[in-house]
Write a protein that binds this DNA or RNA. Structure first.
Lengths: 331, 331
DNA sequence: CTGAAAGCGCTAACAT
DNA sequence: ATGTTAGCGCTTTCAG
């Protein structure tokens, strides 16, 4: 009846009745039932967001970006965690879809076949985020991790470093880390270089892990002149270890991480890193969904390629990078 | 009809029909519509979780605990962010309630009057988490921040420190930080001590913030012998600053933070801290909801008081703490 | 064991 | 500007 109209601020209602209804609603503590509403109107203003984990520092920022734009719309984000595990992602996705959301934002381009089928069949806008290297289902916004890895390799090689070690996650689970690694080694190869040694770990990334891995690697190869970490947290741990042990950073030993997390700027010395604009990725993805919902499109197949920037930190400072080994030795 | 029965694994269905239905469902890519289901059954297996923010490292761990126990139940968590802002919390809460969740977990005991009214009227189990100092609406699981602050004060005073500085968030927003501060200063007063000076900040906590504040405070009072930070992240920043500047930590200058975050264990030296068992808090809260839902209770008014433990780090090591100033001077 | 019927609390379309 | 009516896709209850 009329009540519904005023509560939804739609249609023509006289000022008087509107006031009366609002008053009654407040007095009774009325909370509308969106379940019924959604069923009747065949749409719910929910946007499902599936990310691998929250313990990463990366994803909360993406969520912040998503929130930021959805707040100016009637849409509401709902989160689910895939744990870097396709079968689990499938389950979460199924749950989400059973709520008939207006749109979906999922991490990465790798999904189980069933997940891809569901996504395609859902008839709603789907945005895959954070990665560009692969076949998107509908829209995609992110960076090319292969290229990111390659660029870092070129910067490092260009700065004159030659004996490079790699430290990162065991990669079966994390496709983006794997692509970065591939891009990295590929570009090194083209520069006639090869990783001297590597060290892998699994589990959450913490400073401590970074320390341990760095120690292990440097114990095996004290002559390394560069350490490339697959994320900033372990890079920070590695840096602290190196400083403690008196390694000459960045003079004789360069460090680089990945992600551009804020933590780095608090360290005594900043490893190089690469900012992937997590917040912007969230914003753009949400914007695509919002556009589609507004226009009633079931997706728009947009591709937003963001460009990660190398942050040289104190390791790849431009003046050093330009001149290579010779200059570095003078420092 | 029968289909509904097999999909819900309930009631008596012959093996043959069950198989037939399942096959058809899979073939058609059928995803049940929980909106209709929820409306019909008048219940939804959603648990609303409202936390202030994700950028804090504290809350993701609580969420992990919640997830952990809800995974063994049919319940599903749904997150909302209150941004430390009661009016916004009210809005988020209203949204959540409009989905008629089976239970609610909210952070803290301070809510707007309207929020409290909604919570009470919802007729579902409500668990307030992370704080104990105040009047709960229904159940509560957390620690007493007043006591936590007081205990840290006693430990610091007991270890012989006398010229104590405080560094923390501007507290209008964060009630738990405020209570800690009150407990801290109260206990110091009882020991005949007083904070020499303090430094406040607002905005996200990062290493950098910790550095800046520490510098400001130590510039004003180079003779401080202890710095109590309102969280571990700024404590870590402070530590790095002190080490860089060659302050004799922990010999002449002790440091303590709060939260027991993993980051600390990667630092060259660990400030004292207090572990509040965030994950356990999440687990217990979720368990209460799950119990109530299973038994059909609209709440059980349970009170779970967890005891935070002081982690002395390298600053309040027991051997030093016992003997006070004299011993510290020998170190 | 399976089918039929009656809603759940709303919205949308159509009267008035 | 307001009231009326017919579902939305399920679950629940009650009959076969």
């Amino acid at each position: 009846m009329t009540v519904s109209r005023v509560l939804r601020h739609s249609g023509d209602v006289s000022e008087k009745t509107r006031a009366k209804v609002l008053e009654a609603a407040k007095r009774l503590g009325y909370v509308p039932n969106r379940i019924a509403g959604g069923l009747a109107s065949q749409r719910v203003n929910l946007v499902g967001v599936i990310i691998p984990s929250l313990s990463n520092m990366v994803f909360p920022e993406v969520l912040a970006g998503i929130n930021e734009v959805l707040e100016d719309t009637p849409l509401q984000p709902v989160f689910g965690l895939s744990r870097y595990d396709p079968p689990h992602e499938e389950k979460v996705l199924f749950e989400m879809l059973s709520w008939r959301p207006s749109g979906l934002i999922v991490t990465g381009l790798e999904h189980s076949e069933a997940s891809r089928a569901m996504l395609r069949a859902a008839g709603i806008p789907v945005v895959e985020i954070l990665d560009l290297d692969g076949e998107p289902i509908d829209s995609v916004v992110g960076i090319s991790h292969r290229r990111a890895g390659a660029e870092m390799a070129r910067a490092i090689a260009g700065a004159g470093y030659r004996r490079i070690g790699f430290l990162g996650t065991k990669m079966p689970m994390d496709h983006r880390a794997r692509k970065r690694f591939e891009g990295f080694t590929g570009a090194l190869a083209r520069a006639g270089l090869e990783i001297v040694d590597q060290e892998f770990y699994s589990g959450g990334s913490g400073l401590e892990k970074g320390r341990e891995m760095t120690r292990a690697l440097l114990d095996r190869h004290p002559d390394l002149d560069f350490l490339y970490f697959s994320n900033d947290m372990i890079a920070a741990g590695g840096l602290l270890y190196c400083l403690e042990r008196g390694f000459d950073v960045p003079g004789k030993l360069g460090l680089a991480g990945f992600n551009g997390i804020e933590l780095l700027s608090g360290l005594p010395l900043r490893p190089a890193t690469m900012d992937i604009q997590r917040r912007e990725i969230g914003r753009r993805a949400a914007q695509i969904i919002a556009d589609c919902v507004e226009k009633g499109l079931p997706g728009k197949g947009e591709r937003v390629a963001l460009t990660p920037r190398i942050d040289p930190g104190h390791t790849l400072r431009a003046d050093l990078a330009r001149c290579g080994q010779a200059v570095r030795d003078q420092v």
